[in-house]
């Protein structure tokens, strides 16, 4: 029992990330409002980014900028820079794709006058 608790204490952050990811997935599936779906997409993306960056974290490590007092002899003194780079570009791409999604949402609202998915489906079937 104690080992199980220790295991949970070491891995608790993964359960948090999975919870955030599932919140985003639920918003994308179950919410009918298109802007809520966009917010769900953003939450899903950030959960994956959190997962990546947490893999690169090291205990007692500093930020990944060279400290002349520490030097580079021991790589464990700095966090792993690779996940940071991958996720930095992913954040910028995510805001650009959010812009495209909002443009599509505005076009849908101009054509149908509503953002609710079920009402749009009804209007499409009615035609």
């Amino acid at each position: 029992m104690h080992e199980l608790l220790a295991e949970f204490g070491n891995k608790f952050h993964y359960y948090g990330y999975f919870a955030i990811m599932m919140i985003g997935l639920y918003a994308m599936i179950a919410k009918t409002n298109l802007l809520k779906k966009c917010i769900g997409l953003g939450i899903f993306q950030t959960a994956i980014m959190l997962f990546y960056v947490s893999i690169g974290a090291k205990e007692g490590a500093g930020i990944p900028i060279l400290d002349p007092a520490v030097g580079t002899a021991d790589p464990a003194a700095y966090a792993n820079p690779l996940p940071h780079v991958l996720m930095l570009t992913a954040i910028v791409v995510s805001v650009a794709t959010l812009g495209v999604a909002l443009a599509l949402v505005q076009n849908i609202h101009r054509d149908h006058g509503t953002l609710e998915e079920d009402e749009i489906l009804q209007r499409l079937r009615g035609k």
Binding site: G56, P64, V92
Partner: peptide, 27 residues
């Protein structure tokens, strides 16, 4: 808190800044 300062900087400018403005503009 995970020592990812560059990512945090990007998130503060993009996530909390630009994407909120874009979302409010769309609303």
């Amino acid at each position: 808190s995970m020592a990812a300062v560059d990512v945090a900087f990007t998130e503060a400018t993009i996530g909390a800044g630009i994407s909120t403005v874009l979302m409010i503009a769309a609303v």
